[in-house]
Design a protein around this nucleic acid. Structure first.
Length: 348
RNA sequence: CCGCCCUUAGCUCAGACUGGUAGAGCAGCCGACUGUAGAUCGGCUUGCCCCCCGUUCAAAUCGGGGAGGGCGGACCA
């Protein structure tokens, strides 16, 4: 797979396609000339994603990590911002508490499969209190209306009250992209308003508009309606036991043969979360997927591409129950190293 | 600072005028039916009624104080 395909595979959108092509072309040129990207190389292409530190990685973090692994493979340098200041601004606790969870999070990312040598972890507070940063932040504040900043914070639900800190939050995200010298800003689709704000406002203080890549959001597991969230409903995380994974996956909405389930009576869009997780988690990380199937139903099935699995599912050849048990098994093996790290962290 | 409104189950709210320690819908959980889940049936759980003080035999309900949240406070209409 070439650099461009690695960058864009399983991405919900890229802004803009032209800008990504430029990055990909540059990576291709460098790899063919034999100059493998070294960390800290001023010419290297850098991608980043930012997360508020949380003690336990959940499926959203893992989805982002999958993309970062793709980007590393494509030759990019990868930066994970452990956004302690952002977490503080979002009311997640004291700096001490937040920083402690930041360390745990970093270890879990490595356990999940990020190359430790090629991943740079940066604590937001390392650079976000600098004088220059602060002045730039105020300059951005001058360029941004409250309502625009408020709209960019996806976590703010209607009806919730908004603090000034939450309005500053997205502006800092924009500035981080510049200060970390990022060529590609990565985030889930819930980050697109923040990134669009960054593209609009950074040029007004004479910085470049960042190129952005957004990963899809997985549908709510038990209904297929809306998006899976770490704050409500069923979510999958690194602290799930094998049994919990099995139970959660087994409880997932998964109508037989329906790749594109019908909307609900209230006209809410529905997706098949089981297929989504196969597509975004399993196939990117495994060359071959084996679905164990009882002999009475025809024996095991083997796939080396997501499309093959979908086509069997659509035809009815692959039954949801078999798909689910296979999914639980693969998800479990993805989570296992992180789960062990987590137990180690808690035991010590 | 001042004024008005709100606070009851995880969520949206009823109950307050006419005191008798609480209800609905949704969600959730459990069974039946499906080789999964959903749908559909059947069953079940849940509450510092925002806090404190007072009146009363008895307070979610009445009185006082407080906290949190929403909206408003020039002009124009």
């Amino acid at each position: 797979m070439d650099a461009h395909d690695l960058i864009t595979r399983n991405a919900a959108e890229v802004v803009t396609e032209e800008e990504v092509e430029e990055i990909a072309a540059d990576l291709e040129e460098r790899s063919s000339s034999g100059s493998r990207t070294q960390s800290g190389d001023p010419e290297g292409k850098r991608a980043y994603v930012g997360y508020e530190p949380s003690g336990v990685l959940h499926i959203g973090h893992m989805l982002g990590a999958n993309k970062l692994i793709d980007l590393q493979e494509a030759g990019m340098e990868v930066v994970i911002l452990l956004a302690d200041v952002h977490a503080y601004l979002n009311g997640k606790g004291t700096f001490e508490e937040i920083r402690e969870t930041a360390t745990r999070m970093q270890e879990q990312f490595v356990a999940y499969g990020l190359d430790e040598e090629r991943t740079e972890f940066v604590l937001g507070s390392e650079f976000q209190f600098g004088e220059e940063y602060t002045l730039d932040l105020h300059a951005l504040e001058l360029e941004t209306t409250l309502s625009r900043a408020e709209r960019a914070m996806s976590e703010i639900g209607s009806g919730d009250s908004v603090t000034v800190s939450q309005a500053v939050y997205p502006l800092m995200q924009a500035l981080d992209i510049e200060y970390l010298d990022i060529d590609l800003a990565v985030g889930g689709m819930e980050q697109r308003k923040v990134h669009m704000l960054a593209r609009d406002t950074l040029p007004s203080i004479d910085y470049e508009a960042p190129t952005c890549l957004h990963t899809p959001l997985i549908s709510e597991l038990s209904t297929g309606i809306g998006k899976m969230s770490s704050s409500s409903g069923v979510t999958i995380s690194m602290e799930d036991s094998t049994e919990e994974i099995e139970d959660k996956v087994n409880g997932a909405f998964c109508p037989a043969g329906e790749v594109d389930p019908e909307p609900t009576e209230e006209d809410e869009a529905r997706n098949n979360p089981v297929l989504e997780i196969f597509e975004y988690f399993v196939f990117p990380r495994f060359d071959e997927v084996v679905v164990a199937r009882p002999d009475e139903y025809g024996g095991d099935l083997r796939y080396d591409a997501y499309e093959q699995l979908v086509s069997d599912f659509a035809s009815g050849e692959l039954h949801p129950a078999d798909a689910k048990s296979a999914l639980a098994r693969y998800l479990d093996s993805l989570i296992e190293p992180g789960r062990e790290k987590l137990m180690e962290q808690r035991g010590g």
